[in-house]
């Protein structure tokens, strides 16, 4: 039996995901999530003993390539950043 999500859980997770929810959003999401997770619980009926998980629909194998540097223009990379200085992106202060 799975734990159903509480309002405190939703608040905690939204903080972790760096999303501020208004009180109204928090209440709306909390009640919707109970309904959604309740509907998802039918997968508990499936016997998955000895079943391997499929992380992809097809078998994906590691592909290796030579460790060669391919240059992507720094100007292109920075072209979408609005705040930049001396070839760096200017970000908010840490802490």
């Amino acid at each position: 039996m799975k734990k159903i999500i509480t309002t405190d859980d939703v608040k905690h997770i939204s903080d972790l995901a760096r999303i501020n929810l208004t009180e109204k959003e928090l209440m709306k999401f909390s009640s919707e999530f109970v309904e959604i997770l309740d509907a998802f619980r039918i997968i508990d009926e499936v016997d998955v003993k000895d079943v391997e998980p499929s992380f992809h629909p097809l078998n994906i194998r590691n592909v290796f390539r030579d460790d060669n540097v391919k240059i992507f223009s720094a100007d292109d990379i920075l072209s979408n950043a609005k705040k930049k200085e001396k070839g760096f992106i200017l970000g908010p202060k840490v802490g």
Binding site: N80, A81, K83, G91, P92, K93, V94, G95
Partner: peptide
């Protein structure tokens, strides 16, 4: 920070 919606990074990291 790098593309799309951006603002003045005046606040601390997490708040921004």
């Amino acid at each position: 920070l790098r593309y799309g919606l951006q603002a003045d990074p005046t606040e601390n990291f997490n708040n921004y």
